[in-house]
Amino acid sequence: MTHHRDIGAGPPDEYVEAEIQRLLVEDPAVAEQGITVVRRERALVLYGEVESPHRREEILRRVSERFPDVPITSDIGVIRAQAPTEIEQLP
C-alpha cells in the first residue's frame, strides 16, 4: 500500500478513504472487497456484509489501529445463511 503522506489529526479526506478501501482488500486479516467507505461530515462510515461476526469486529479493529485519529462508524451486517423459502421458476 502506498502512503502518500502522514495522516495527522485532520479531517478525513479522499486519501484516507482510498487507503482504508485498499486496506480492507489488501490486509490479509480483512480481505473484503465488498465493504463501502462513505465519507460523512464527522466520520467515515463502513457499510457492507460479511460472513461472520468475527470478521466484522476484525475490520473495525484493523481500520482503527491503522487510522487512530479518524472517527470510524461501522454498519456492517453478517449475511444470513438459512435455506431459501422460495424457488424461482424459469420457464
Binding site: E49, I79, A81, Q82, I87, Q89, L90
Partner: peptide, 13 residues
Amino acid sequence: HPVIKQAYSVFHV
C-alpha cells in the same frame, strides 16, 4: 451470497 442473503437460491429451469 451478500446479494441473495440466504444459503443458496433454487431455480427450476
